[in-house]
């Protein structure tokens, strides 16, 4: 049972577990999701601010009509590269309910940076009523709540096709290659030049899908960049400390061997 045995056991276990875990996650998934290149992948990956801002624009102009973003506050947009004045201006475009005031009445006011994005519908039933019975899910955690989330979101938004011959769609459903069961209530959300990008980027469907995927990946874990940065420092520190501990161990044990 030496180092070699440990290596062997670890490798076999790692393979078995990773396969078990991925197959557990894959349950209910119909097709393989193609992998994309993302600026935020890998241990040094960071978000592209331009991409995030464009993605926010897609969310604002396309998704937010039906999907809430409950865990994101306007103040969080500072991560996208907006400054305080810009964030105040963005927030002011929205109305939120506040109160009760001194007269006991609820009232509307312009949103502040501390407010969260107002939801498009007051409750789930209202959301269903406006969407043919389907409930548009909150998007704050989409990239984490789906297996291989970022690639899945991009695939989903670019995966609309005409149904293959012989497939009859249910009332109000659309065909999507990557959606579990292929029948999705959401109609194809993105259209060629559906948004007018401020930075002049050509708004193809793929471009919008990429941008909004990056934005939703950020929204799922706004602290990702901090996490990776601290991780790199932590592992470097531990590597040096462990080498020193190993040298100390050798020296302490020199008399025993």
């Amino acid at each position: 049972m030496g180092a070699r045995a440990f290596f062997w056991v670890t490798m076999v276990a790692a393979v078995a577990f990773s396969d078990g875990i991925s197959s557990a996650k894959a349950a209910g998934k119909a097709v393989d999701i193609p992998s994309q290149e993302w600026s935020f992948q890998g241990i040094f990956g960071t978000f592209d601010r331009g991409e995030l801002q464009r993605g926010f624009q897609v969310y604002k102009e396309v998704c937010s009509g039906c999907h809430s973003l409950n865990y994101i506050a306007f103040r969080n947009l500072v991560d996208l590269g907006f400054n305080e004045i810009e964030i105040k201006a963005i927030a002011a475009e929205y109305e939120v309910e506040d109160g009760p005031n001194d007269d006991g009445e609820m009232y509307s006011r312009a949103a502040l940076p501390s407010d969260r994005f107002p939801a498009p519908f007051p409750n789930a039933n209202a959301a269903r009523a406006s969407n043919g019975g389907a409930l548009p899910p909150d998007l704050s955690l989409m990239a984490e709540a789906r297996s291989d989330g970022s690639n899945y979101l991009f695939a989903l938004m670019t995966g609309y096709r005409d149904p293959p011959a012989g497939i009859v769609l249910a009332e109000g459903m659309n065909y999507n290659v990557y959606f579990s069961g292929h029948q999705i209530a959401m109609a194809m959300p993105l259209a060629e030049d559906g948004v007018d990008y401020a930075d002049g980027t050509k708004a193809t469907v793929a471009q919008q899908a990429r941008d909004v995927t990056a934005f939703l990946t950020w929204a799922s874990e706004p602290n990702m960049e901090q996490r990776k940065r601290i991780g790199v420092m932590t592992v470097l520190f531990l590597l040096i400390m462990t080498v020193l501990l190993y040298v100390s161990k050798r020296r302490v044990w020199a008399a025993v061997h």
């Binding site: 875990i21 709540a145 789906r146 989330g149 799922s220 991780g231 790199v232 932590t234 592992v235």
Partner: peptide, 25 residues
């Protein structure tokens, strides 16, 4: 030290690898 290196790598670089995505619903 060796343990903490492996543990930190998972915590900081792949923290959701051992979890299930459905638990974010």
């Amino acid at each position: 030290g060796v343990f903490l290196i492996i543990f930190s790598a998972v915590v900081f670089f792949m923290p959701n690898a051992m979890g299930h995505p459905d638990n974010y619903i």
